[in-house]
Structure formats: structure tokens, C-alpha cells
Simulated assay, not measured.
Amino acid sequence: MSDQPIAIEHLCFRVPPGGQLAFLREDERIWGAALRQQPGFLGKEVWLDAEDPELVHLIIRWASRAAWKAFPPERAEALDRQMQPFYVRLEQAKEYQLWQPNLLGEEPAS
């Protein structure tokens, strides 16, 4: 296991329900293809918000924060420009790390 915790990138977009299918298709075509080529990318999930049907949550898993931040910023900007016709508004961008007891000097349970 890595000595760095898995990093989670959580992006939340406000997309009217009538535009969500186009948004999700283009996100997979544009960002999905690029992410799968990036070392340290572990996967991505899409969550639709039951309480607010306009919210689309993207949960992106990285092997480490360093792997995530190694994604070239100029590449991210170019991909974002391609997605602009499909974005309505980025509501939030958050970062999480997977808690792993052994990273805190604790021994794994036997």
C-alpha cells in the first residue's frame, strides 16, 4: 500500500435536468478519456442529487494528492474550455483524503 492516502476530488455542478445527459456524455468523452491516461487516476463516479435534481456530483479518485496535482494545469484548462458549452455552474470543489490507520502509525487489525 502507498505511504500516501488516496485523494478524492469532489466536483459539484449545477446542470438543469434537460442538459444533464449532454453534460455527462461530453464529460465522459472529454475528461474521461484524458483522466484514464493520467498516472494515478483510479476512477470516477457520477452521483445525481436526490434532494436537488439540478446537482451533478463527480467523485474522482486518485492514488495520491501528488498524482492528482501532477495533472498538467494547461491540459485541465484546455479540457475545461471544451466543456464550457455544457457547464452551467460549478457549485463546489472539495478535496478529501481516505483515512488509512497505518498512515498514522497504527498497526492494521488482525
Rank of each mutant, 00 (worst) to 15 (best):
E107I: 02
Q82E: 15
Y87N: 10
Y96F: 15
D27M: 14
R65E: 13
G32R: 04
S2K: 14
Q84D: 11
W99D: 09
L104E: 11
E51W: 10
E74C: 05
A50W: 09
F86Y: 11
M1E: 10
P16A: 09
P73K: 04
G40I: 01
H57E: 04
P85H: 03
L24I: 07
L98Q: 15
N102Q: 14
I60Y: 05
D27V: 11
Y87Q: 07
A7L: 08
L55A: 07
D80R: 11
G105W: 00
E77H: 08
V15F: 01
A33S: 15
E107M: 01
V88G: 09
R89F: 08
R65D: 08
A63Q: 14
Y87E: 09
F13Q: 06
R25G: 10
Q82N: 05
M1W: 00
P53G: 01
E107S: 03
Q84F: 02
D49V: 02
P108H: 03
P101R: 00
R36D: 07
L58H: 13
D49P: 02
G40P: 02
V46R: 05
Q100H: 11
L48G: 05
S2T: 15
P53S: 07
P73R: 00
L35G: 02
E28L: 13
E26S: 10
M1A: 14
E91G: 00
G43F: 01
D3R: 14
W62T: 03
P73D: 06
E9R: 11
E106H: 02
D80M: 10
R75G: 07
I30K: 03
S64D: 06
R65P: 00
Q100S: 13
R36M: 07
R75K: 15
G105I: 01
L55M: 09
Q20H: 05
L11Y: 08
R65Q: 13
A76P: 01
E51M: 12
F41A: 01
C12K: 14
A109F: 00
D80I: 08
A70F: 01
E106S: 02
E28F: 09
D3V: 10
W31M: 11
Q4I: 00
P72H: 04
Y96P: 07
L42N: 04
S2M: 12
Q37N: 10
Q82Y: 01
E91Q: 13
D3N: 15
C12I: 15
V88M: 06
Q4R: 11
L35I: 03
N102P: 00
L103Y: 04
A66N: 08
A67W: 03
M83N: 02
A93P: 04
A33Y: 05
G32L: 00
R36A: 11
K44L: 15
K44Y: 08
W99Q: 11
P101V: 00
D27N: 15
M83I: 04
L90N: 08
A66H: 10
E45P: 00
F13I: 04
V56Y: 01
A7D: 03
G43R: 03
Q4H: 09
G32K: 03
